[in-house]
Write a protein that binds this DNA or RNA. Structure first.
Lengths: 379, 379
DNA sequence: AATCGCGTGGCAACTGGTTGCCATGTGTTG
DNA sequence: CAACACATGGCAACCAGTTGCCACGCGATT
């Protein structure tokens, strides 16, 4: 609170040597007083702490890092910060990191594997661990990185690297069942980026579920996972839209709805649309977007928790760079539960504009049950 | 590309000493070869570079920072990453920082001055400069910080500290003129957080413009600057909504529209609403939100550019912590132009539900001119 | 009384670069 | 041919901590 200290006008320049001299001890003792509590006599430690306070001493994290090889920073690499999906993940990560005394180094890779590599190159030597969210690099590249520093991957499963992913399969299943209960029999999947692991996962899951529920499925894409991409998808779809669509993510779904609207196709009367992720905006648009809610915040938090565990595991000696044993199951991905949020973008299949085969309208009680809307992101 | 180097299996552990030995020179020469091009004979430098490459050597930024007191990192402090407003700013900052070889340390302060201080405390010793976006600290606290490290403030003017702000006054003027041209005579301002400098600025500007244009203005608030806040504002407004509203930011405006809709008040038929910032979602909702577009990305970029200039200015000797002379005008805020984006949330004042005084409907040609919509954020 | 062990504190080496200053060698100039 | 300037490389100190090892002193054990 004081603006001027007695002797140290420049709080950034006080070193352990200054403190040591003033306290009448050796610099090493000062160092120990801070970094190794218990190693120093309580009385001495107290005195040192008082002098340090008085001088306005702060440990220099860089100097400390130089010998301990621990910086207290972790890198968070995301493809696009502006994507609200990652914004939530970042928040979750940041919260738990901060709580543990760690700082986050953020890198946006603009959806480019090249930039991602470059960013890692820069960040690697400075951080204790790395969080790769939605990486666009190859599995083998990721594995290489994880050999040098602790790594946790989000939204993607990579063999031999700890991962945290939402339950894509169950999410897609929920969406498909919901649509089936509304009477839809043909679902189109609007695909996201080819490089995305989640995209492949979701499409595969959809095909499996389709078999089981006797649904027909088609697929268009790939599209860039933003609103623009959705608009383009609508164009491509224009000729023969199926009565139900599941999009790779919410942005695509939103763009799709806009694009369809522009072509005179109404949602949900003519086409039902389901998204994925439940981003902030899903609740803002009209109609509200039915979507699979991924636990974004939790994902970031969980991944960070694991990473921190790995880091403190490595704490042993500064040898064996990648020798951390994974916290629990090695290489086993942690799967986080998802839930379907039903809003206005899905509805009973209309009889017209469908093949006259099964014109019966079924009112499914379970669909009605599931129709609990949620409140918008408030935080 | 190679997975195994000839002699250095652990690329993270090669030092200048290893390179020096292998190249037959002194460590200092290796250091110079990298950090001081020209100081070393071209041929020698080339040889060193080759050996380094071969050994997989990378400079250790921490060690370098220890003696140079330059880390190549800048802190970016924002109140809420999930706020799309800041997401864009971050992107702008990150782009120019990366281009200059700098890395960004991100800190979210959850709209808390206390957390903000703590974050700065942690980050300060590690970074070369600080970007404060939407700080919740006091002016004097900010000034203190800027005495220790180069600081640039965004979206707020602080005396004696370089700032980058959008042209709030002109933005509000544009909005008010637009509403006036549509026949509105009474505008309500929905206020954001009290601690926000921008909020005070916008309200003051509105009052000034109102005088000039012979408009009446009222004000409600403060509200938290999110959708929830807008909903609450709608509740508070319910009894006597004016025909026109300007909200502190887009989230408030969006919440307001939802809240009004829930109470049976239609936008824009009954009430015209204008937001501020032109975030991503402004174009997604129905009706589209008329809003003042702030140059978010540019703001981040500009601020970063200035900060980097200040940092390289400080580069002289490691003395005088805060002695950087501001790039151009000292303490003068850089004001960035804004523009009004007219969408569906504003319309001609309806004759009913207004005082019968001036029932004449005016069709303003300039309002029609201004009605150019923009495409949503694509990037 | 001699020995053992433990709690403390100091010495000095180490982390991986940077840089001021000096020595050497070479080319240029008077 | 001497004097001088300049290019180039090395030495060693320095940045601000951490830590292995040792020494000292004191109380407990036998």
């Amino acid at each position: 609170m004081l603006e001027h200290q007695e002797e140290a006008p420049v709080p950034g320049k006080v070193t352990i040597y200054d403190v040591a001299r003033r306290a009448g001890v050796a610099p090493s003792t000062v160092s120990r007083a801070f970094s190794r509590p218990g190693r120093v006599n309580a009385a001495t430690a107290e005195r040192i702490r008082r002098v340090a306070e008085e001088l306005g001493y702060r440990v220099n994290p860089l100097a400390r890092a130089l010998s301990t090889a621990r910086t207290g920073m972790i890198a968070l690499v995301v493809p696009d910060i502006a994507n609200p999906f990652y914004a939530e993940v970042i928040l979750g990560a940041q919260a738990t990191a901060t709580r543990a005394g760690f700082t986050i180094l953020l890198a946006d890779t603009q959806e480019s594997g090249r930039i991602e590599r470059a960013a890692l190159e820069r960040a690697m030597p400075t951080v204790d661990g790395i969080l790769l969210a939605g990486s666009r690099m190859s599995d083998s590249a990721i594995r290489m990185v994880s050999k040098q520093k602790p790594v946790v991957v989000l939204n993607r499963a990579v063999v031999d690297v700890p991962c945290v992913v939402p339950d894509n399969a169950r999410g897609i299943r929920g969406a498909a069942e919901h649509l089936a209960e509304l009477g839809h029999q043909h679902i189109t999947y609007v695909a996201g980026p080819e490089a995305s692991w989640a995209d492949g996962m979701r499409w595969r899951s959809l095909r499996e579920v389709a078999l089981e529920l006797h649904l027909r499925v088609g697929r268009i894409g790939p599209f860039t996972p933003d609103v623009q991409g959705g608009v383009r998808a609508a164009e491509e779809m224009g000729t023969s839209p199926t009565s139900a669509v599941i999009a790779y993510n919410d942005q695509l779904a939103i763009g799709l709805i806009r694009g369809l609207a522009a072509r005179g196709v109404r949602v949900p009367q003519d086409v039902s649309v389901v998204g994925f992720d439940n981003i902030f905006a899903a609740d803002l648009i009209t109609p509200g977007l039915t979507t699979v809610a991924a636990p974004l915040h939790t994902e970031g938090a969980t991944a960070t928790k694991h990473l921190l565990a790995m880091i403190s595991g490595t704490a042993s000696r500064r040898s064996e760079p990648g020798a951390q044993r994974v916290p629990e199951q090695a290489g086993q991905a942690v799967v986080l539960p998802v839930r379907l949020v039903v809003r206005g973008s899905t509805a009973q299949r209309s009889r017209k504009r469908t093949s006259p085969a099964s014109g019966t309208t079924r009112v499914s009680p379970s669909a009605a049950k599931a129709a609990t809307s949620t409140s918008a992101g408030s935080r």
